[in-house]
Amino acid sequence: MESEIQRTEMLLAPTLAFKKVQTADKYPKGQSRGRQWKHLRHLLQAADGSSLPPDRPNYLNIQSPPSIYPPKRYCDITGFEAPYADPRTKLRYSDPEVFKQIRMLPDEYVQRYLALRNAAVVLR
């Protein structure tokens, strides 16, 4: 180990005396374990929310509902109010200048702009 690394104590020691079970014993080397952590969404599904009493608060039912206001539309490029939408790229835009810009955009950028508001085409 390089001396700077040792001096700054930046690495976690592989064994720690205060632990009852060491990490290496719990997660043996060479076993793929990246997959075992499911995402929160799946965990919540697996926990089966229907078994919980509906009148009691739980993680899912305290979520905010959608806004009562109609969503405002903003230009994907400039952020100004967007009265128009491009039917081809599906991007919203504020004025003709931006429209020209949109039509020059490569598809990758179009998708990245759409992804910002979760509207990109997802290929599965």
Binding site: S64, S67, P71, L116
Partner: peptide, 11 residues
């Protein structure tokens, strides 16, 4: 306005 990043929930 969470809708700006595609989250359909109240601000």
């Amino acid at each position: 306005q969470p809708g700006m990043i595609g989250v359909d929930q109240a601000g």
